[in-house]
Every structure is written in structure tokens, then in C-alpha cells.
């Protein structure tokens, strides 16, 4: 474990708790893409199947359990409890356009052709594009609530920090996982224009609104 990965994980935890809190407090999931949340749920479930088989550390197990639980709770709030506030007219990104190619790629490009490894690879690839429906929804509505933009900033920062973690581990531990690195770079690149808007607008107290 290194500081980059720890701060990255905490940023990730902050992001998902922030979103859950926003929906619970405002009793509304307006501006939140349920499709992205479904895909994040799929990401955690397919990646953390080893939750009960191989124990890495208390931290690792606890975080995995929290991520899965918070993802499920968020999906429940969006599609059941506060379903009336779910903005399905703007959450129109076709998930199958992401899940099918990612599933195919996981079969073709992986470290080991075993079920667990292919599911892990699927999870890594899916995570890199899972935010697209959310970014697409913001581009359609033309704006995002400030709390939602903080969620996105924390979520985008987590994988950016993981890239620093991989550089660190490459030089100090001789560790590298090309699949995770490439997918992590794609994922972080997708946030770039949002990061720009966040830094230029939200940090100056303005609402995040896309140029119409």
C-alpha cells in the first residue's frame, strides 16, 4: 500500500458516499444516471467475487464490502425508493453499447483465460467506461448539481491517483498490470473535460453548466 493508492481509495469511498448522501438527503436522484450506477454495481460484483475466497487484509475486505453495499443501496434508492425523481428521459445512454464490447474484449484480452480472471478483466474494462452515461446525461441536461460535480471530481480523482500508484509500484515494487493501467488511463481521460469545467467553474463557486 502507498499513499497514492490510499488517498485514491479514500477519494473513491468519499465519492460513492457523497452520492448516496445526496440522494438520501435531497430525497431525489435528479441529475444522477441510474445506468452508470448499475454498471458500477456490476463492476464491484464482478471484481470482488474473491471477497470470500482469498483474504488480502482487513482493509481490502472491508472496502470491498462497503463498495458493494453502497452501490446496491444507491441503485435501490434510484430505482425503487426515489424512483419518481429518476430522470429517465435524460438517462438514455444505451448500456448494451458498452457492456457487450467490453464483455467481448475481456474474452480476447486478459491475463489468464479463467472465469475469475475474465470477470476481473471485464470489471476493469467496464469501470473505465461506466461513467459515460452520467457524463452523457450532464451533456444533455447542460448542467449538474454542485454536489453531483463533487461526486464526479472525487470519482475521477480516484483513478487518476491510481495511475500515480502504478507508476510508484512500477519503480519501487516492479509491479505493473498493463490491463489495469491502460483501462485506468482511458477512464481518467474521459474525465478530462469535466475536470476542466470543475476547476474553472465549480471551484469558483459557479454552477457546473456546459456551454449550450
Amino acid at each position: 500500500m502507498n499513499i497514492f493508492r490510499l488517498v485514491g481509495d479514500l477519494s473513491h469511498l468519499l465519492a460513492i458516499l457523497l452520492l448516496l448522501w445526496k440522494i438520501w438527503k435531497t430525497r431525489s436522484c435528479a441529475g444522477v444516471s441510474g445506468k452508470s450506477q448499475i454498471m458500477f454495481g456490476l463492476v464491484y460484483i464482478t471484481r470482488y467475487l474473491d471477497l470470500f475466497t482469498n483474504f488480502i487484509s482487513i482493509y481490502n475486505t472491508t472496502m470491498k464490502a462497503i463498495f458493494i453495499a453502497v452501490a446496491i443501496a444507491t441503485i435501490y434508492l434510484i430505482y425503487f425508493k426515489f424512483k419518481a425523481t429518476y430522470d429517465s428521459n435524460h438517462d438514455t445512454f444505451r448500456m448494451e453499447f458498452l457492456i457487450v464490447p467490453v464483455g467481448g474484449l475481456a474474452f480476447l484480452v486478459n491475463h489468464d483465460f479463467t472465469a475469475l480472471e475474465i470477470l476481473w478483466t471485464f470489471s476493469i474494462y467496464l469501470e473505465s467506461v461506466a461513467i459515460l452515461p452520467q457524463l452523457f446525461m450532464i451533456s444533455k441536461t447542460g448542467e449538474a448539481e454542485t454536489i453531483t460535480s463533487h461526486y464526479l471530481f472525487a470519482l475521477g480523482s480516484y483513478r487518476a491517483l491510481y495511475i500515480v500508484n502504478w507508476v510508484y509500484r512500477y519503480y519501487f515494487e516492479g509491479f505493473f498490470d498493463l490491463i489495469a493501467i491502460v483501462a485506468g488511463c482511458v477512464q481518467t481521460i474521459l474525465y478530462c473535460d469535466f475536470f476542466y469545467l470543475y476547476v474553472t467553474k465549480v471551484m469558483h463557486g459557479k454552477k457546473l453548466s456546459l456551454p449550450a
Binding site: D9, D50, I56, H111, D112, N165, G174, F175, L178
Partner: peptide
Amino acid sequence: LGFHDIKDEL
């Protein structure tokens, strides 16, 4: 250099 096959990252 090689990649770890244990998945110790989240």
C-alpha cells in the same frame, strides 16, 4: 519486472 497475479488492489 512482472505483474503480480494476486489482486491486492481494489
